[in-house]
Amino acid sequence: MKIELTGKRAVVTGSTQGIGLAIATGLAACGATVVVNGRGQAHVDAAVDAIRQAVPNASVEGFAGDLGTAEGCAALVAAQPACDILVNNLGIYGPEDFFATDDATWTRYFEVNVMSGVRLARAYLPGMEAAGWGRVVFIASESALNIPADMIHYGFSKTAQLSIARGLAKRMAGTGVTVNSVLPGPTLSDGVAELLADEVARRGASLDEVVTDFIKAARPSSILGRAASVEEVANMVVYVCSTQASATTGAALRVDGGVVDSL
């Protein structure tokens, strides 16, 4: 299967590192013009350079702005009014006990993880419908189904993404526009590396060893038994954004290594 996206314009939010950068790189490799996003210009410029190094002749642009705010989303749409493929990857996470999680934290997770995707989908979907083709993908998490006790606020935000994506898929029925969610499981991203850096230093072990031990302890249902790479997650996203995936919509597609124990 050869995925060809030449002539398509893709916006990938939160794409200066990790899964987002891998998705942006994968889409660029298939010929799409990709808009990379991060909050800081230096990080955006570095990501653009990294994609150009990985994909010779890549068509890639950058937008620096905080999409966790209504103002940031409006600025992106003003700067990039055309979009054929929207990947709502922007997200924050972190463990915190339910009883220590204040209203401000709940609101922040809702604004960044949920409302960024809502605002951008609301802005870009009419243009996709008018064109008769489009792709919207929400990067959720296995935590949307397997709610972590130490990150209830995060799990809630990812479950909300599944609801929005499913509803939007129905709303866009018959338009040529598909809307799906992709649910990564434990993934060896930059964020995970930062989260486990102290444990790596304490044990004097490799990051791979620490992550594998974490999965065995915290996600014992994992069939894969290891973390996925960011490229493995990106592969699923790139396919869902392809013309070949025209019959896939309203789906919650898991790249979780079998963590969620259901048929």
Rank of each mutant, 00 (worst) to 15 (best):
M1S: 05
M1G: 07
K2L: 12
E4C: 03
E4Q: 11
L5W: 01
L5A: 02
L5H: 00
G7F: 13
G7H: 12
K8A: 08
A10L: 04
S15Y: 07
S15T: 09
G20K: 06
I23N: 00
A24P: 01
A28I: 00
C30P: 01
T33V: 05
V34T: 02
V35P: 04
A42R: 09
D45V: 12
A47Y: 11
V48Q: 07
I51L: 09
A54T: 08
P56S: 12
E61Q: 08
G62M: 05
F63K: 08
A64F: 04
L67S: 08
E71V: 14
E71C: 09
V77K: 07
Q80R: 14
Q80F: 12
P81F: 15
A82H: 15
D84R: 02
I85L: 13
L90I: 15
G91P: 01
G91D: 03
I92H: 04
Y93G: 11
E96M: 11
F99H: 14
A100E: 13
T101H: 07
D102W: 10
T107E: 14
R108C: 00
Y109F: 15
F110T: 15
N113E: 03
V114H: 12
S116V: 13
G117T: 10
R122H: 15
A123M: 10
A123Q: 10
L125F: 08
A130R: 15
R135M: 09
S143F: 11
S143W: 11
S143P: 00
I147M: 14
P148S: 05
P148K: 03
Y154I: 01
G155L: 12
G155D: 14
F156A: 14
A160E: 11
A160Y: 11
L162C: 10
G167D: 06
G167C: 08
L168Y: 12
A169D: 08
A169T: 09
K170P: 00
R171A: 15
G174L: 06
T175Y: 08
T178R: 11
V179P: 01
V179H: 05
N180L: 01
V182W: 11
L183W: 04
L183S: 00
G185K: 01
L188S: 05
L195D: 08
D198R: 02
E199N: 10
A201D: 13
S206Q: 12
L207K: 01
L207E: 05
D208E: 15
V211K: 01
L224P: 03
G225R: 09
R226D: 04
R226Q: 12
V230Q: 08
A234N: 03
Y239N: 05
V240K: 01
S242P: 11
Q244K: 09
Q244W: 08
T249W: 03
G250Q: 09
D256K: 00
G258E: 07
G258D: 05
